[in-house]
Nucleic acid binder design. Structure first.
Lengths: 232, 232
DNA sequence: GTATGATTCAAACAAACGTTTGAATCGACT
DNA sequence: AGTCGATTCAAACGTTTGTTTGAATCATAC
């Protein structure tokens, strides 16, 4: 028996199902994608999903897990590299942001191996109402968020942590829409030159860093009268 | 017959259904919300939805239409006011951004009449895969986007229009997440002080304007070697 | 009071859903 | 050849889905 070797023929059906599900989830959403659509596209039998994954929910989870685990591993590795280079010195906020969002954008730029497809799916899923998907995302992100937010707190020691938290949240939103919404939002003008993910990276990074570095907000009690109040 | 007067008793069932649907769509999503959940919450008969709206799709459309029409009317009114005040002079970009996003945030701050609920729904819907919802959103937004983008083009005449378009897109993403994701993204730290929509406005506005004003990106051919290349 | 149009209601409809079943098929090892 | 575990398959399972139906109920107008 070869229980130590790789599985017989790597059950390519399993992978076909994952790929088909990923693509269909982007196209129609999680709930609107049926098992029959998935197995049909994967050229597999209807029962194959339940055989290989147990349930539709478990399949959804695995679709996210296989990509997200690798993405977050890369993110942590990038942060590790930064901190090693800095040798204890505080990191540049822009480098931290690049490590987090740049890694994601690199995956989104990969149209060959489905990375682009997945990132479109992921971007939409942060606001997914499905309870167990959110729960799963939270667990999968816990360590990465703790590490990156901690790094930002140290890099911007004079900025209130609450503000950093919010701005990180805003940045996640901008990135998610940039990826998930490029074709969705053809609201925007007829010709939306989205077909250039190579240029998306510097575009988004400029925007994110501009937002991160923006002057802190002033919470004026009566903001109606606040005309030209500037705050540095 | 009183065909000129208001409908007998304003068919309050219709409104109860709309309110129930709106709340449930936020909670569970469009597809995962069934007619029976809606009519159950609205204390109406199952057939009432088809009687008053024709179909579930038509109900979805009406849930968005009743709020979105008013929101975009306010946005256009705010822009009209700005342009009237300026008397032909170019507008300040920050004012344009405030007119567009501030109006939406004001609606999101209204927790009394369901505005907050709706904005959470709307924010998620820009990336909604459902084809006909997107089609409907595109139509509903066409005029507003044309007006506001046009105003930004004139206010930032020296900035390439493509960059403005992208940054507007990024801003939409940041805002949508700020609203739609506050409770969804309790990924972020245990205690996320989201319960203060009064402070969300200045926070988000600072971020958006920082991003809008950020230095334009440089598209370096070989970005691997670009270590400390600074661009102003 | 009675006719009329609008609304509500319980019940049923066919279709699609995720899942389960038990037999058929396959590949590898003895 | 024969056994065994893994995988595939067609068929059916019981629910739930959005929608339709025809009678009951209501408020109003004559």
């Amino acid at each position: 028996m070869n229980d130590s070797a790789l599985p017989r023929q790597a059950s390519e059906t399993r992978d076909r199902i994952l790929d088909a599900a990923e693509a269909l989830f982007v196209e129609h959403g999680l709930e609107a994608t049926s098992m029959r659509m998935i197995t049909g596209r994967a050229n597999a039998n209807l029962a194959a999903v339940n055989y290989h994954f147990g349930s539709k929910d478990a399949l959804i989870q695995e679709v996210f897990r296989r990509r997200l685990t690798e993405l977050n591993r890369q993110r942590l590795a990038a942060l590790d590299r930064l901190e090693a280079e800095a040798q204890g010195a505080p990191l540049k906020p822009s480098r931290i942001v690049e490590a987090f969002f740049g890694t994601a954008l690199a995956l989104a730029a990969d149209t060959e191996h489905g990375g682009h497809t997945f990132m479109r799916l992921l971007g939409r899923t942060y606001t997914e109402p499905n309870a167990f998907v959110r729960q799963f995302l939270a667990e999968e992100y816990a360590e990465v968020l703790e590490r990156f937010l901690g790094a930002l707190y140290r890099a911007l020691a004079d900025v209130p942590r609450e503000e950093i938290l919010w701005r990180f949240h805003f940045m996640m939103g901008a990135m998610s829409y940039a990826i998930a919404g490029t074709d969705a939002l053809q609201l925007f003008a007829g010709t939306f030159d989205d077909a250039d993910p190579q240029r998306l990276m510097p575009r988004l990074m400029s925007f994110l860093l501009g937002g991160l570095r923006a002057p802190l907000p002033v919470f004026s009690a009566a903001r109606d009268a606040a005309e030209g109040a500037a705050a540095a």
